[in-house]
């Protein structure tokens, strides 16, 4: 019997499945995406390079001195230890205040609260709070933490600044944690409830571990954001000139932090202070990068355990 014209002979099949149609749109799109990525990376590299270049004298000549000395009116003797102390302390405040509060609020909203109109209203408003300009939080911090609660915080102190920034990033922690918790499949919760676990047992043993990588990512984004904020610190009252305090552990004392220190350096004459400004920027970037990398490492470890 003759082979029918549509019979799937070896030749026909081979011709069909080996043909490679040119996918013009796909190829163009791929390169558009790639260039978007390259532009982003290029901007970062140029930024980093220009700062390293500008601060090279300080970074290579007297880095140890620069990061261990206090601010001085002499550019060649001035350092940023007060800024580093302030920034690290603020990070600690954010981690110890915003993270537990934010994760707790997110767990409550997602696992415990009934989905009523009130909770939806609260949800929307937390999102709005995340969009409030940081300088507004600075004014809030000045009024509440630096002035009204002066007896506790000691006035315009690193404690007032730390609490202000913790409040600033709280909505971000809540939103990212809530999203991570929402992404936990319901089937896991049902499995837990199905063997007679309580809500808390299911949350602790199954929901939180599963959501942990996402929560960590959100936490790190928040800490990084807090590390980089200058405006609220200036409003709350970071020291603008020479001062003697700013030692590590002086929670209720005058303070300085890296972003506001950079701002302060940048307002001084560029010819003599530019190197200090750039070097401080590089140090701040290094701290932020270190925090981010630590978090990514942690997250990968927890993700692997799934």
């Amino acid at each position: 019997m003759a082979v029918a014209p549509h019979a799937l002979t070896r030749e026909v099949v081979s011709a069909r499945i080996q043909g490679r149609r040119a996918d013009v749109g796909g190829t163009v799109f791929k390169y558009v995406l790639l260039s978007a990525l390259l532009v982003t990376i290029a901007v970062l590299v140029i930024l980093l390079y220009s700062q390293v270049d500008r601060g090279s004298e300080v970074l290579t000549g007297r880095l140890g001195d620069f990061i261990t000395s206090k601010y001085s009116s002499l550019p060649t003797r001035s350092g940023i230890i007060q800024g580093i102390n302030g920034t690290l302390t603020i990070a600690a405040f954010v981690i110890f205040i915003a993270v537990p509060l934010g994760v707790g609020a997110a767990v409550y909203l997602e696992e415990y609260a009934q989905k009523t109109r009130l909770t939806r209203f609260i949800d929307v408003n937390i999102r709005n709070l995340a969009g409030v300009p940081s300088v507004v939080y600075g004014i809030l911090g000045l009024a509440i933490f630096a002035r009204a609660l002066r007896n506790v915080t000691g006035g315009a102190s690193v404690m007032a600044a730390g609490i202000t920034l913790a409040v600033l990033v709280l909505p971000i922690v809540i939103i990212t944690s809530a999203e991570a918790i929402r992404a936990v499949p319901d089937s896991i919760r049902e499995a837990g409830f199905g063997v007679g676990a309580t809500r808390w047992e299911v949350t602790r043993s199954h929901v939180l571990p599963y959501a942990l990588p996402g929560i960590l990512t959100g936490t790190v984004l928040s800490v990084a954001r807090a590390l980089g904020e200058a405006a609220p610190l200036i409003v709350v009252g970071a020291k603008t000139g020479f001062f003697t305090g700013g030692d590590f552990g002086d929670l209720r004392d005058n303070f300085q932090a890296l972003p506001s220190q950079i701002y302060q350096f940048s307002r001084l004459p560029e010819s003599s202070w530019g190197g200090n400004t750039a070097a401080a920027i590089v140090v701040l970037l290094a701290i932020v990068l270190a925090v981010n990398s630590a978090a990514i490492l942690l997250r990968n470890r927890f993700e692997k355990k799934r």
Partner: peptide, 19 residues
């Protein structure tokens, strides 16, 4: 309900082991 589920166990339609 927690006490109920302790006594009335369930095997779900889709396998759902804990990760």
């Amino acid at each position: 309900p927690v006490e109920v589920r302790r006594r009335v166990g369930m095997v779900f339609q889709k396998p759902n082991p804990f990760p």
